[in-house]
Design a binder for these strands. Structure first.
Lengths: 417, 417
DNA sequence: GTACCCTTTGTGCAAAACCACAAAAGACAT
DNA sequence: ATGTCTTTTGTGGTTTTGCACAAAGGGTAC
């Protein structure tokens, strides 16, 4: 699913050039050859491969080096030495089914443009062959540069379309569908907008590395991705049968874990909006994702384990409720009474009530969270019912209290800032 | 607590006239005499009463005939015959400690202005005395008319102030306090606005009867009352120790019951707003009361047993939430899935979920409400969890679902209208 | 028809929530 | 210091709830 979205007519000739290049190198060295871009995406592979390893089949079929291989190579420092070494280096690792290879980095003024891989198999390349490979790497530089720049052009209109979608400029689902088709972007039935927020703005090179990681995920197909300040915004799509809260949460979690592990970069949070079939709801999904991010900042404890808008629960509405309360200025007499008692008697009935509601009125969990005996909790709840005159067996009342509790908290925070 | 609020300097002379009148009649008939207005409020009682009965002490002390006596007289048709009969009639009922009396209605062109009561005790009035009484009733007509008209003037500024309070025109608590003091209106610490809505607009005479009933309640002190179209708006006050949800609910319930019973008039609903100490929150309390009324119309079943704004729970916010949802147009995927299943398999999981939440997730109550076996309910809940992927042990999620459930319902209703 | 799946109801057991009571500790005022 | 009131924790027993399993009924597709 890798680079196909960048395909357009003016790029095909370049791709043909790549194929000719690898075939020529392959013929000269009498070994299978693979050309890759800087992001581990396959640009071309030599014609006369008599493919023997599973890894290579996967690489060619998916047009990308398998995730586990990349992972392995990073973990064992192979990628790093490849990046730093001017000369071709030999890679012999049996463990993950990788054949013996020689790899060289294609570089232009320090910038990494891609890699050439030569599969040695059981007959290692001689020194002259290595030398030839080194030269070949230099020879292909210009072509790859051209490839990148023409790709950038496509990329710009690509970015442009994504922003239009995010901003809801195109109102018709059909129209969007056609545009995607024209751009050769194939979506599954469902899509949603994911947003990952970095601790601080990063450099463009980091952006690319992060996006590579994102695109190489196994759970969802990334249709678009773009950086906007600290935010990485992505439109991801998946088949209905594979779309569940669990799956999306896992996707977000794993991606954030990987960036941390592989690149040492931490996102503050990663979230996603509503999941829709209609492309004209992408803007909605984006806004929803931002809402979740906002909530994560305002009430981190409360929605610690929520990443999707669909699971925000009442917090979807908390900002509206907060504003309503600010305007209306009504008191919640239940809470007033409890607060008064707490202050007077140095108690913590309010906190108890909050945690109790946080834990869905489960006495066991609440007692644990408060580090108190269940009987103590029951006693406090009795007092809350008595003092606050609070009907703890009335769902509606509890919601009213919960809303007022949380909005009060937020308003207090607002005042501090 | 009756008529004192109408007292003002230009009225005192009239009240003196009344005292002179009753003393004169009392002297002539050699019996204690009481003069009352049309609303059973005492205008004057004769000087030389040697009071013997508890009822009379109460009447004079409270400046109003005791509630239970009025109740008794209405129930036994005495009031009715008094209203209809031109001549004085004799009332002999021992049962409630009432001494033997002769009463006559003071009438002017059909309109009832008041009553004269003469206590006979053990020496009944002779026919001439009755005849004299009849004439006296006619003689006092003009004075009472004057009394009413001057009272109306006071009443107008009275009404005016109330509207200012309801509309929040006076911003300062202190200023309002002073105005009340000037008008000789004494409030307890807490007050709230109650609103009762009639099925249809009523005549002024009915208004007065209803207000009399309202003022004669035992639970709260009525500081102001006014009719606005179908709505009877009242500002009531009470001491903090007597102020509870139960007390206010009882007040509203009993008053509505009495109007139905005594006057045959039904209110659609009676409600009250927030309870405040500060007079400048009366407008807020009024708006809150109207909010409750609005809810009573929109979701009668849901808030059937709620009359006070403080107990509205989440429904305080339902209109805001409804508007938010109308604008935002997001779907609740939990509910979507459940709905879809219901439609496909002709089930009623959605209704089950709603009733379940309505009953605070109490399986027993829910099963009863749905007329199904608890195991059936448990099975359905299991299916709801499975099909809708709904975490029924997460308070926040449940709130989100509940809000969306109820707002959806309201929006559907809105569309029908 | 019949096979299959979903739903309802019944039974019984185990877990949990709830409640009453008591002892002990702590807070606070006289 | 003393007594009173509130709070915490423990014990033990009852009630309620949750869940597994089984049987029966209902609808649908082949």
């Amino acid at each position: 699913m890798g680079e196909e979205k960048y395909r357009s007519t003016d790029l095909t000739s370049t791709l043909n050039d790549f194929r000719n290049f690898v075939d020529k190198v392959s013929d000269t060295l009498q070994a299978p050859v693979i050309l890759q871009d800087a992001h581990n995406r396959l640009l071309a592979h030599s014609k006369h491969d008599n493919v023997t390893s599973l890894v290579r089949i996967q690489t060619i079929m998916t047009r990308q080096i398998p995730e586990k291989v990349v992972d392995y190579l990073w973990k064992h420092g192979v990628m790093l030495s490849l990046l730093e070494c001017e000369q071709p280096i030999r890679i012999n690792v049996k463990e993950i089914g990788l054949e013996n290879r020689v790899a060289v980095c294609i570089r232009d003024q320090g910038e990494v443009l891609g890699y050439i891989w030569v599969i040695e198999g059981d007959s290692p390349l001689c020194d002259e062959a290595i030398e030839y490979l080194s030269k070949a790497a230099k020879g292909i530089r210009l072509l790859i540069s051209q490839y990148y720049s023409s790709m950038n052009k496509a990329d710009k209109s690509h970015k442009n379309l994504f922003w239009q979608l995010l901003l809801g400029n195109i109102k018709s689902h059909q129209e969007i569908k056609k545009k995607l088709y024209d751009m050769n972007i194939h979506s599954y039935k469902l899509c949603t907008v994911a947003v990952f927020r970095l601790l601080e703005e990063a450099e463009t090179t980091l952006h690319h590395q992060i996006m590579d990681l994102l695109r190489s995920n196994q759970q969802v197909k990334v249709l678009f991705d773009i950086f906007n300040g600290k935010d990485l915004i992505a439109l991801v799509s998946m088949a209905p049968e594979k779309c569940s809260v669990q799956a999306l949460d896992r996707f977000v979690g794993q991606f954030m874990h990987l960036t941390k592990e592989r690149l040492g970069i931490s996102f503050t949070e990663g979230v996603y909006g509503g999941v829709y079939e209609e492309y004209n709801k992408i803007d909605l999904s984006y806004v929803e994702a931002l809402t979740v991010l906002d909530m994560k900042e305002q009430l981190p404890r409360e929605i610690e384990e929520i990443w999707g808008y669909g699971n925000l629960g009442m917090y979807k509405y908390i900002n509206i409720l907060k504003e309503a309360r600010k305007k209306h200025d009504g008191k919640n007499f239940f809470l007033e009474r409890i607060c008064e008692y707490d202050n007077k008697h140095n108690q913590q009935l309010l906190k108890t009530l909050e945690i109790y509601l946080d834990h869905d009125c489960n006495t066991f969990e609440t007692a644990n969270a408060l580090y108190i005996h269940t009987n103590t909790l029951n006693y406090r709840l009795k007092r809350i019912r008595e003092i606050g005159d609070i009907p703890l067996n009335d769902f509606n009342q509890k919601i009213g209290i919960y809303i007022d509790l949380k909005t009060k908290k937020l308003l207090k925070e607002d005042q501090l800032n």
